[in-house]
Design a protein around this nucleic acid. Structure first.
Lengths: 180, 180
DNA sequence: ACAGGCATGTAAATAGTTACATGATTCG
DNA sequence: CGAATCATGTAACTATTTACATGCCTGT
């Protein structure tokens, strides 16, 4: 029951199990379809973390097998919800972006202009995909999301739109203006 | 001389030593003031990586002590530059964002509206700082940057602006409209 | 029958941060 | 003189991914 060091992963899990019990598998799917564009988690983090949360008294587990297929659902305890709320009130906003596309572009003067254009087009294609995915999410699960979760999804849509527009602008600058 | 697995860190270092020789210390400063908002590197990565690049024949080192203070400068070899160019032509655009502020907000329906407003204000303050820092960078080193590097800096400024605007819009929605 | 999805879990590898040790030089 | 900065490096720790092993259930 001693409180271990809680990481962002811990809180993400707690966040998903405050209202509805979920299995480790569920939580992985939930992160994949809702937070993965700004916060991802893998099975290798989730399963050990769930056990840690239970040991710390922040979650309780319940075995709910489907026939012979095992399944363990976790739900946040009142202590877990308090820990989540305390974390939300903290004002650290740790932020870390690793964008290999931008890194390539940063050094792309070492390549031909054609390669620069290809690179930006690749980035653009990728971001258009992200944009479509997020817009799809909004249509499919948007109405079920809590208001602040919906806000964050809109942040993602706005971000992806900005990124696409930016790529298009850079391409327009790099490509010779075509004849009328 | 056998080619080891090169990581984004390897290429970032190569990128900084294509034209001008730099020490490990230099490279750390360079990443801090230019790529850190989308790609960071620590001494613990840089120093071992420089040795790896030299062993692979992608960089050469030269001892340039300042009096008794040691200093080793590295410069990319032609093979190193080729490796960098080949990497730029690759079209993988690995992307990873960890934004603890957005994660908090995603689950912030578990907290009071006042806490939600505080959170967004904290995020906004942080992003305004980023925006000022990047704008400062543009003024100070902007003209020295290669064209594609400058593009990326502009991406950062546009991104931070979008993020600030978005925060302001969410605050306007959350805060009760004040009387005329 | 078989593919795909549900479900749990871990081992090994890779990545990355942090903190420390050490010492020189420069500037006020 | 003292603080800040230049400079190199590593050990320990923390974080994270990847790949694998295992097996059940559902729909075609």
């Amino acid at each position: 029951m001693s409180t271990p060091n809680l990481t962002p992963v811990s809180y993400a899990i707690l966040g998903f199990i405050t209202r509805t019990p979920h299995s480790g598998y569920d939580i992985k799917q939930l992160t994949d379809i809702s937070t993965s564009f700004f916060f991802a988690a893998s099975y290798g983090q989730i399963y050990p973390e769930l056990k840690k949360l239970e040991e710390a008294g922040l979650a309780t587990s319940k075995s709910t097998p489907q026939g012979k297929r095992e399944r363990t659902e976790y739900l946040a305890t009142p202590a877990g919800i308090e820990a989540l709320q305390a974390w939300i009130r903290q004002n650290s906003v740790a932020w870390d972006l690793k964008d290999e596309g931008l890194l390539r572009l940063f050094f792309a003067d070492n390549a031909d202009q054609e390669d620069q254009i290809d690179l930006i087009e690749t980035i653009l294609a990728e971001k258009r995909l992200t944009l479509r995915t997020l817009e799809g999410m909004k249509e499919s699960i948007g109405e079920d999301l809590l208001p602040t979760s919906k806000m964050v999804l809109d942040w993602g849509i706005g971000f992806a739109s900005y990124y696409c527009d930016w790529c298009e602008n850079q391409l327009a600058l790099l490509k010779p203006p075509s004849k009328e």
